[in-house]
Deep mutational scan, measured.
Amino acid sequence: HAATELTPEQAAALKPYDRIVITGRFNAIGDAVSAVSRRADEEGAASFYVVDTSEFGNSGNWRVVADVYKA
């Protein structure tokens, strides 16, 4: 099962156990969220919340930071 994305309210009520950072070329924010979901799932997380997204220069590469939560 894939890790689910939390709302800001849900994330605020929970304590993350880790923070992950992924970088890559994403065509849309949805693609980045899917990549975070896969990584969170690999780490055994039940859910995640994207904290920050930023573009690296003009290369089209993105850096996505997310907190991950157990259950």
Rank of each mutant, 00 (worst) to 15 (best):
A2G: 14
A2T: 13
A2Q: 13
A2M: 12
A2W: 12
T4R: 14
T4Y: 14
T4G: 06
E5Y: 06
T7P: 04
T7R: 08
P8F: 14
P8T: 13
P8I: 10
P8A: 14
P8R: 14
P8M: 13
P8S: 13
P8D: 09
E9L: 10
E9W: 08
E9Y: 07
E9C: 13
Q10Y: 05
A11I: 03
A11R: 04
A11M: 04
A11W: 04
A12Y: 07
A12W: 06
A12T: 07
A13V: 14
L14W: 07
L14A: 07
L14N: 08
L14R: 11
K15L: 11
P16T: 02
P16L: 00
Y17M: 04
D18Q: 12
D18S: 11
D18N: 12
R19A: 03
R19I: 10
R19P: 00
I20N: 00
I20V: 07
I20F: 05
I20S: 00
I20A: 00
V21P: 00
V21C: 11
V21N: 01
I22A: 00
I22Y: 00
T23G: 03
T23K: 07
T23R: 06
T23S: 07
T23L: 11
T23W: 09
G24K: 01
G24E: 02
R25A: 10
R25L: 08
F26M: 03
F26G: 03
N27S: 12
N27V: 10
N27E: 12
A28R: 10
G30I: 12
G30V: 12
G30E: 15
A32Y: 06
A32E: 01
A32C: 12
A32S: 04
V33L: 14
V33K: 12
S34I: 13
S34Y: 09
S34P: 04
A35L: 06
A35T: 04
A35Y: 05
V36R: 01
V36H: 00
V36P: 05
V36W: 00
V36F: 00
R38Q: 11
R38A: 09
R38T: 07
R39L: 11
R39V: 10
A40Y: 03
A40F: 02
A40V: 06
A40L: 05
D41E: 14
D41I: 15
D41Y: 15
E42N: 06
E42M: 11
E43D: 12
E43P: 01
E43R: 12
E43N: 08
G44N: 05
G44M: 05
A45E: 01
A46W: 12
S47P: 02
F48R: 01
F48V: 01
F48N: 00
Y49L: 10
Y49K: 03
V50A: 00
V50Y: 01
V50W: 06
V51E: 01
D52V: 12
T53H: 11
T53C: 15
S54E: 14
S54W: 12
E55C: 12
E55L: 10
F56M: 13
F56E: 13
F56T: 09
F56G: 07
G57N: 08
N58Q: 12
N58M: 10
N58R: 09
S59Y: 07
S59C: 08
G60Q: 06
G60W: 04
G60H: 06
G60K: 05
N61L: 15
N61H: 12
N61D: 13
W62E: 03
R63M: 13
R63N: 06
V64S: 00
V64L: 06
V65M: 05
V65D: 01
A66P: 00
A66W: 03
A66N: 00
D67N: 10
V68T: 02
V68G: 00
Y69H: 02
Y69N: 01
K70T: 08
K70R: 13
K70E: 09
A71W: 13
A71K: 12
